[in-house]
């Protein structure tokens, strides 16, 4: 349910950029790490609800989930952590440390040229 807070923060950022560009936003690209507790459907629903009647009404959110990187303690290889097979992709060791989760990021905004 914190998705509403995330949606609010997105709305503020997109609105600020829209005012700067003096253009109508059409879509926004968002990314987050797989361990971020963000449910896509809930975020889309929350954003649609609060964007109604604002310049962000109708803005399409494209959410991508980024894998978390891990560092192998055996061979120092940095690899994409796969929860189904949590091993180093190089030496197959299971002794690794997870890197910080990619943060929740507003990557880009698409604007109408009209």
């Amino acid at each position: 349910m914190h998705e509403l807070m995330v949606a609010q923060s997105l709305l503020t950022s997109i609105t600020a950029e829209a005012e700067k560009q003096n253009a109508k936003p059409l879509a926004a690209g968002i990314s987050c790490g797989i361990f971020n507790a963000i449910n896509d459907d809930t975020l889309l629903f929350a954003f649609e609800a609060i964007a109604k009647g604002t310049i962000c009404e109708g803005v399409k959110l494209n959410i991508s989930h980024k894998p978390v990187q891990a560092r192998c303690k055996n061979c120092q290889n940095i690899f994409e952590f796969d929860i189904a097979s949590p091993r180093c992709k190089n030496c197959h060791s299971d002794d690794f440390e997870l890197m910080p989760d990619p943060p929740l990021l507003l990557e880009e905004i698409e604007f109408d040229t009209e």
Partner: peptide, 16 residues
């Protein structure tokens, strides 16, 4: 239509 790169952390207020 054109794109603007933003790269802003959405939870930056909490992180601060």
């Amino acid at each position: 239509m054109y794109k603007v790169k933003v790269g802003k952390k959405i939870l930056s207020a909490n992180e601060e």
